[in-house]
Design a binder for these strands. Structure first.
Length: 564
RNA sequence: GCGCCCGUAGCUCAGCUGGAUAGAGUAUUGGUUUCCGAAGCCAAGGGUCACUGGUUCGACUCCAGUCGGGCGCGCCA
């Protein structure tokens, strides 16, 4: 992002508005000017980061350390020259500049600069943290994409929580987000479902004679059979059984997702439509024309090794049908042609092997699709423990824990917060017994409690919105108040990086920090004091904190109770 | 065997494009309420960042190898 800001804008720093959100950029610009005027570099742009330890100041830069080597100078000397240049043209937000350790430059801000974020939050309200850096960018996020052959399990739950939150995060950056659910309704999984329902309806038990090895064993199969018969259906009518079963399961999945607080999908894309609308045939033809295919053993192959895959892949089987990866490529062409040049697929890590070949297929089409298209956010499976033993997650076995059960046991808020809290690719164990017995200790309650506590305090303090907005933040002096305001000011940048890095897990972590900073401040200073001006100032900081907590929880799909 | 991911406190996990004394929660121990919500706060103990070597001013972070774990490697989806 270009920095159009020059020195002239420093004169406007005292003005209210979006100052806090711009502070970092302004400081970087100031530092960059300092680097130039000190004659250290014509191109280097200093990076600003929060020091791990608060005593070191509000911001720090390691630019002197980085420039020392190319300049052939001692880092401390470089830092001294840099500091001299900065001292020569002081920044109105900065109260102190110091050199520390091997050559860090630590910067301390004036209190007014730190507390300006409070006014920003109160003014922006629910939109605080939103930016327009990616305004108008069309982004498609595909997630859940469960086969309509059974209830959603804990893996789907993780995917739904990650996907929904990621979509929300992208929207805060101005993206036009399209939520898509891909339905594998054309494969033999559906045939298997149909057959399983028919057999159970006829009284054939799993593992008895005539039961297929890969038949679905779950109890829901029996229930669907009963419902079908009760509705007057003919079990021998495969097409009718199939339609009925898929319909029932789709409804159940939708019900679970709704209960999980997942926003409505914009589109349910049917795999079968890729065949009926000719996209599959068109894709095959295009690949043949591209010259990257060949025939061998009566099958048609694509030379995906030309694009980094470790072996070539069959497109059309000797028996005549296409392998699954052909409609997959056709599907992604559809995403591209619908104008989505940023696409994120959220899938289990067990699908990582398919990434190379899908991308290879898209490359081979030679239609200008970039190499790394689409993006993937892979998550590892959720292991479920119960009674000290692992419950195997297997759709075929039917013995897995469902999303509906998780919600029933620990509640939607806790499940969502918990599932997003972990990095997507780290495995984790969901201990059902623990979650049941200790749900009160789930971190989500800590954050929700902070929000409820603030709401309660604000009710007691009875400061009007006008008085909150007009409060004199210069009255805030406690270091814990400064620490809290500093954390609040990080929120917009946090959302931007979480969206950019496809890393929703940083949000729960951040909300915990905000809550901790508030609780700590609350213990140090009384809000409802007799001095009304002071009361308003402190209440305004609390109100801003509640707003950030509420905004963050909303992105996670977790409620922000005003009392609990 | 090959490919991708992972290995951080007793347990569950953070650690941003390499930066200062490796952090949270939980568990353990000890404090804390005549006053706005104690589901809180304050503090203590707890570490060979799997191991070995390399890159450099500096490595949990980057590279190579070893060990251990997960997943994938079908003319299944």
């Amino acid at each position: 992002m270009p920095l159009s800001c020059t020195r002239s804008c420093h004169a406007n720093i005292g003005a209210p508005g979006i100052i806090a959100a711009m502070q970092k950029e302004q400081l970087i610009e100031w530092l960059t000017v300092g680097v130039r005027s000190a004659g250290l570099s014509d191109t280097a742009v200093p990076a600003l980061e929060r020091p791990k330890q608060a005593e070191h100041g509000d911001w720090a830069t390691n630019i002197a350390l980085q420039l020392a080597k190319p300049l052939g100078r001692n880092p401390r000397d470089v830092a001294a020259a840099f500091k001299a240049a900065l001292d020569a043209s002081p920044h109105p937000l900065v109260s102190e500049i110091s050199i520390a350790g091997p050559g860090f430059i630590n910067i301390r801000l004036k209190p007014a600069a730190k507390f300006s974020v409070v006014a920003d939050v109160l003014k922006a309200g629910e939109k605080f943290g939103y930016g327009d850096a990616r305004k108008g960018e069309k982004v498609l996020v595909e997630f859940v994409s469960a086969n309509p052959t059974g209830p959603l399990h804990t893996g789907h739950a993780r995917q739904a929580a990650l996907g929904d939150t990621l979509c929300n995060l992208l929207e805060t950056q101005g993206c036009m987000v399209h939520r898509e659910f891909y339905y594998n309704d054309a494969g033999n999984q559906i045939d298997n479902l149909t057959r399983s329902v028919q057999l159970r309806a006829k009284g054939v038990e799993p593992d008895s004679e005539g039961w297929p090895d890969d038949g679905y064993r779950g109890e829901y199969i029996v229930e669907i059979g009963k419902q079908f018969v009760a509705a007057g259906g003919d079990v021998n009518d495969g097409a009718a059984v199939r339609e009925f079963a898929v319909n029932v399961l789709r409804k159940e999945q939708d019900k679970d997702l709704t209960a999980f607080g997942v926003k409505k999908f914009d589109c349910y894309y049917l795999e079968s439509s890729l065949y009926t609308d000719g996209r599959v045939d068109k894709t095959v033809t295009a690949l043949q024309v591209s010259g990257h295919t060949y025939e061998l053993d009566n099958a048609l192959w694509l030379k995906t090794t030309d694009y980094g895959d470790d072996k070539d892949r069959v497109m059309r089987k000797a028996t005549g049908g296409y392998t699954y990866f052909v409609p997959d490529v056709a599907y992604h062409v559809s995403k591209w042609e619908r104008g989505f040049h940023t696409v994120v697929n959220i899938q289990g890590t067990d699908h990582h092997g398919t990434i190379a070949r899908v991308r290879a297929g898209l490359q081979a089409l030679d239609m200008g699709i970039p190499k790394g298209y689409p993006d993937y956010l892979l998550h590892s499976m959720v292991r479920v423990m119960q009674g000290g033993e692992e419950v195997k997650i297997s759709k075929r076995a039917g013995s897995y824990i469902t999303l509906g059960e998780l919600i029933e046991w620990v509640g939607k808020d806790a499940v969502r917060f918990f599932l997003v809290s972990r990095k997507a690719d780290s495995e984790f164990t969901f201990d059902i017994d623990l979650a049941r017995s200790q749900s009160e200790e789930n971190p989500v309650y800590y954050v929700q409690y902070a929000h409820a506590r603030i709401c309660s305090v604000l009710r007691e303090a009875a400061v009007s919105d006008e008085a909150l907005a007009a409060a004199d933040r210069g009255l805030l002096t406690h270091e814990k108040a400064e620490a809290l305001a500093t954390i609040l000011a990080d929120y917009p940048a946090l959302l931007a990086t979480a969206a950019r890095d496809l890393a929703p897990h940083v949000l729960p972590y951040y909300l915990r920090e905000v809550s901790a900073a508030f609780h700590s401040y609350y213990g140090a200073e009384r809000i409802r004091v007799d001095d009304l001006a002071l009361r308003a100032a402190r209440a305004s900081l609390a109100a801003a904190t509640a707003q950030v907590l509420k905004n963050g929880l909303q992105l996670l799909g977790v409620s922000a109770p005003t009392k609990m």
